[in-house]
């Protein structure tokens, strides 16, 4: 295994993505809106297209704003259809994101004569390339350290999410578990909902532009669900899911380097492997979690079964 500085940076960037995603991800899982990350990552296409058509550049900041706005709109429209039309939330989410994606595709194709905007290219940043885009460098002792732009962006998003989660912990918690109670306590549950959605939109957009959509979708849901199997306390769930996500990023990158040579290939994609690793960690928790794992459930069921296990009484 040939480990260089770039590999360290990839793991760091992956871990920052994991932390940025895990914090809002826990609330998404608890609210039953886990598919929101996937929905937003598809739905932002018209935002990207419009930002591009209006400004005429592929400057990442305008694209980011456009995408983030449409990301929040996805949440707003979903809520709107759910409330107004009394449609199941999953279905309204699906309708909104497919429609927005189609709209974006239409815009891009309509403008295809003048512009060059490839949806595939827009949607998939690549974590392996992040180390080429250096934002600044500094001397650390005697070594020169290059800090990739991706690390700065994802570090700030992670910090932002951390601040929001810490400052609004009580409000987010109470409105995730019991919106009615939150309202009676004087907390605007609707506002908290949209705060969370904005957080998810910003995180998703920032992260997929930099590292690709697969990592984001995986890191939003899977570590949070894994942590949900391991604890009943929300603050522990947040901490555990961040740790699990970060370790999945590390293990995933190592696997991406180590596994392919073993089966006769050169290398494979790190982002895919990170997603697979979150899945593997989930499976471990699913089977062996102390209270909610499959194994412990079977064992505890045995305890309950025993007193009743004799022959059935006959008339």
């Amino acid at each position: 295994m040939n480990w260089i500085v770039d590999d360290t940076w990839i793991v760091i960037i992956g871990a920052l993505t994991a932390i940025a995603c895990a914090l809002p991800g826990c609330f998404l899982v608890l609210r039953g809106m886990s598919m929101m990350g996937d929905a937003i990552s598809h739905a932002v296409l018209p935002g990207l297209a419009i930002a591009f058509l209006v400004t005429g550049t592929r400057a990442s900041f305008t694209m980011f704003i456009g995408a983030a706005v449409v990301g929040v709109l996805t949440a707003v429209f979903t809520q709107w259809i759910t409330n107004l039309g009394k449609v199941d939330r999953g279905a309204s989410m699906g309708i909104v994101f497919t429609t927005l994606f189609a709209l974006g595709l239409l815009l891009i194709v309509q403008a295809a004569d003048y512009v060059d905007l490839d949806p595939g290219c827009v949607l998939y940043g690549n974590i392996e390339w992040t180390t080429f885009d250096v934002s600044f460098e500094f001397n650390w002792g005697s070594t020169l350290v290059f800090v990739p732009r991706a690390a700065i962006i994802l570090g700030s998003v992670a910090l932002l999410n951390l601040c929001i989660t810490v400052f609004f912990f009580k409000e987010l918690k109470i409105s995730a578990f019991d919106p009615e109670l939150a309202t009676t306590q004087g907390i605007n549950a609707q506002l908290m909902h949209y705060l969370l959605m904005t957080q998810v939109a910003i995180t998703t957009v920032a992260a997929f532009e930099v590292v690709g959509s697969i990592i984001v979708i995986a890191m939003l849901v899977t570590p949070a669900a894994t942590a949900h199997l391991l604890t009943d306390r929300l603050h522990w769930m947040l901490v555990i899911s961040a740790i699990i996500g970060a370790s999945a990023a590390g293990i995933g990158h190592v696997l991406a380097i180590v596994v392919p040579p073993l089966i006769g290939f050169e290398s494979t994609t790190t982002s895919g492997m990170m997603a697979v690793t979150t899945g593997l960690l989930f499976i471990v928790a699913w089977l062996f979690a102390p209270n909610y794992g499959w194994l412990s459930r079977i064992l505890s069921r045995k305890d309950v079964e025993n007193p009743f296990s004799g022959p059935l009484p006959t008339d």
């Binding site: 886990s34 598919m35 697969i214 949900h228 199997l229």
Partner: peptide, 23 residues
């Protein structure tokens, strides 16, 4: 077999399988 709800289960399968697919 677990306390994970439908939506999270779908999200997990979606992202992990898609990751596996790209691999």
């Amino acid at each position: 077999t677990s306390r994970i709800k439908d939506d999270a289960a779908m999200g997990i399968v979606l992202s992990v399988f898609f990751g596996l697919g790209t691999v």
